[in-house]
Design a protein around this nucleic acid. Structure first.
Lengths: 349, 349
DNA sequence: CTGAAAGCGCTTACAG
DNA sequence: CTGAAAGCGCTTACAG
């Protein structure tokens, strides 16, 4: 009834414990004949190495760590995060790796978690999200020597390998599309400004505005929540020379913006065009369905896991550029209203 | 530079390793004076027990396990799941517990994971979701003796402690509200029929229909996805004597249903009332904002974690009834259209 | 109340 | 290519 140990396998195969270990881990030191005899015995007994014993003896844990930030931030990233985890797990489970989630409330605590994980050998590597410029965690991880992959722009990932898609390309696609439709006043409801990828998007947006000689191209920062997205939308649409198109840094804010437009008596896409960055199923379920920047977040997670696994194996890893998000035009974008009617918005009408 | 071990602490405090272990774990066997001297030394050295060594010696792992089912099912439950995890983590992190996620593709694999986790002592307990009637996992966990808490109806949790809210109460509230508004033909777009809580909802709904002498009260099963919810809605609204109110088993399907109503030329709530079960922020962001059955899923996760921690501590645990979901009336519900006009729906008009 | 020792189940040099 | 042994860092009976 007791779980078989390596000693049981050794006895069954008529060899020493050491030989069993070598055979099971694909190490040299046993002949092919012995190896297969050992493997057969292990299989018959249903042997699985005890992970604590392995860890204590310095073997890898077959666990990858991911920290989770407290609600406020997580909520906004919610659909992204779950899809990412789903993609991560798909790859990890193939290699018998598990994902260890740990909630943290700040960078310091997160770094402490990394230290403990690594000195415990509870994880073989970690994934890092939501990178900021000069992010403390990057340096800490590099110093620890803990294999890590950054899910974010390579520019902010320091010596760590990163995986990211080129947000610049995607933004160009979206803005040029709007410009081609005739929009001259485009605003962006952006994400958390301290995140590196938000900064990149903002810079690209400003540059594009100049290149395309847009009349206006404001970015309003938010915390990614629907509420904040609604507030930003209300402000933008109340301005004297209000934009005719809005780009939102996530889909939940775009949906909130859609409701605000209606509340303010504007039709979409007649009076206002809307584009959502990231394309969860909900974007197709609202009316009009939202034009969105679509990317395969799950595949993204799979690739991130693959990269981390390679780093853990000590293989040389380099920054990976994943497929950028592409525009899926739907019902929320159209040419701007023809006449530049100066109809002031009346939020409290 | 090397991580301090229990031996370092023992040396610093001038005691044996055993004494340090006792002091750190709050066991009897050391005097208060010695204990505080040891704790001080441990603190100075920044000592944290190596978790693999603890596990190997039979100590608890301070990890709780949760399995994750492959995309198809997860997607529908997505907002529920993330909120639940957030609430779980909030409580777990207070007690220095981590959450181990493992993706599985079926019950058999899930049971195998539990066996491994438990014989490895990689987890001290597990949470079980999405219970079915006669769920294999319940019996397997009971047999293993792995502390476990079921997040689901107590009727389906066997000998395991469960935490759940009374869906019956919530459904009564919703249906009676619709009936009071004058609705006589109410349909329900239900979740996966094989889940125990879906069955409970369906039974309650049928019973209510009789009690309230509703004209019709159909339940259409779905897989929780927006697509399936849209399909079910289209079918229901195309029937000769179509319902005047729809209750959806999750919010994403309700949002999909809203779009279908519009697509079919029906106004909400003028021609059709809609109620969503579970109330993510999106429900307030669509137009009209959805009347919903609101519950605090995060608190729910917190209570589940608390219950599991008690079970792990060997305390007596009983089924917990959490606060049921309550109706939040918003813009998507109103009295049914006055005349029983036999306007057939024209899906391809 | 304390110390010395065995043992948890592996991995990995180290001799043969 | 194989076997015997040390060691990873704890916990917990077991003597004193």
């Amino acid at each position: 009834m007791k779980r078989p140990t390596i000693a049981d396998v050794a006895k069954a195969a008529g060899v020493s414990k050491g030989a069993v270990s070598y055979a099971l881990n694909g190490q040299p030191g046993v002949s092919e004949a012995t190896r297969s005899r050992i493997l057969a015995a292990a299989d018959t007994l249903g042997f699985r190495a005890n992970s604590a014993a392995r860890a204590l003896a310095g073997a890898p844990s077959n666990v990858v760590g991911l920290t989770l930030h407290r609600p406020a931030k997580t909520l906004g990233v919610e659909p992204f995060f779950m899809e990412l985890v789903s993609g991560l797990e798909a790859e990890l489970s193939i290699h018998s790796y598990a994902l260890l989630l740990q909630m943290v409330s700040g960078s310091d605590q997160e770094i402490a978690v990394y230290q403990r994980w690594w000195s415990d050998r509870s994880v073989d590597g970690v994934l890092v999200c939501d990178v900021r410029d000069g992010d403390q965690r990057i340096e800490a991880l590099t110093r620890l020597g803990l294999p890590a992959v950054v899910i974010g722009p390579p520019a902010a990932s320091g010596a760590l390998a990163s995986i990211w898609s080129d947000d610049g390309v995607s933004l160009v696609e979206a803005v040029e599309y709007l410009a081609a439709l005739g929009h001259r006043r485009i605003a962006r409801v952006g994400g958390l400004p301290e995140l590196s990828h938000t900064a990149i998007r903002s810079q690209t947006f400003a540059r594009l505005a100049e290149q395309l000689r847009l009349e206006s191209a404001v970015t309003v920062p938010t915390d990614y929540t629907g509420e904040d997205g609604a507030r930003a939308t209300r402000r933008l649409l109340s301005s004297a020379n209000r934009p005719t198109a809005l780009i939102y840094d996530n889909d939940i804010m775009a949906i909130a913006g859609l409701a605000v437009a209606r509340e303010m008596g504007l039709t979409v896409p007649g009076d206002l065009s809307i584009i959502a960055w990231d394309d969860s199923p909900i974007c197709r379920l609202v009316h009009p369905p939202l034009t969105a920047l679509t990317r395969d977040i799950s595949a993204y997670g799979t690739h991130a896991a693959r990269l981390l696994l390679a780093a853990i194996d000590g293989k040389p890893v380099t920054d990976v550029h994943d497929e950028p998000a592409h525009l899926s035009p739907r019902g929320s974008t159209a040419p701007p209203p023809p006449a530049p009617r100066r109809r002031a918005a009346r939020p409290d009408a």
